[in-house]
């Protein structure tokens, strides 16, 4: 029977009690409230209502303040599409004053960091207009997603959303500096 075992494929980490493999890494990360998909859906509804009512700033603020860190992939994708929608509705000229108001308010730098996370997530998605998760994303154990191959040619919609993200990114970095980008990479609460 020993002859049948392929020694090369044995996961030796699983046999070592000291190994990180046998340790639940989530105990090291900040506690996040689990959020169900239906809650995300309700929130999306509220944000869209604000947006329809012409209060884009309130909609953005609400979406960022209640970012569902504890949701599953589907819930997170749903929230991303809402944030993308709100961002697309705000005109270029309004971006900077809006960001300034947001940044200077109480807890504003936190909100800006969250917005930066959504910008990067959105840009990483390739075609953010479609609600389904693209298939070329391979979720990594680290919580980050790696893009297998970008498809910028994903139709007019994709390119347009990308230009929205890029102009937001430019305005946001002007305000919050590279520190915020580093926080997107190091934060364990992913969006």
């Amino acid at each position: 029977m020993a002859a049948n075992i392929n020694w090369r494929t044995i996961n030796i980490d699983a046999l070592d009690p000291e190994s990180a493999y046998n340790f639940d890494l989530t105990t090291l990360t900040p506690a996040v409230q689990p959020v169900s998909s239906s809650e995300v859906q309700t929130l999306s509804g509220q944000v869209r209502q604000l947006l329809r009512g012409g209060n884009a700033e309130g909609a953005l603020r609400g979406a960022l303040e209640n970012a569902p860190y504890g949701a599953d992939e589907q819930g997170k994708a749903m929230h991303l599409s809402v944030v993308t929608e709100v961002l697309g509705q705000i005109r270029q000229a309004e971006m900077t004053p809006l960001l300034q108001r947001m940044y200077q308010a109480e807890g504003g730098s936190e909100l800006c960091d969250t917005l930066m996370k959504y910008l990067y997530k959105g840009m990483g998605q390739g075609t953010p207009t479609s609600n389904s998760t693209p298939k070329n994303l391979t979720p990594q154990a680290t919580g980050f997603s790696q893009v297998g191959g970008r498809h910028f040619g994903g139709g007019e919609g994709g390119g347009q959303a990308m230009s929205v993200f890029l102009s937001w990114h430019e305005k946001l970095v002007e305000m919050v500096g590279p520190g915020s980008i580093v926080r997107v990479m190091s934060d364990r609460r992913t969006v």
Partner: peptide, 26 residues
């Protein structure tokens, strides 16, 4: 809050406080 990895730690001169800097620029 972000749980970024810690680069450096230091005790205050009296030892009554601790400061650390992490990779989230904080």
């Amino acid at each position: 809050p972000t749980a970024g990895w810690v680069h450096d730690v230091a005790f205050s001169p009296s030892g009554a406080a601790l400061a650390f800097c992490a990779h989230d620029s904080s």
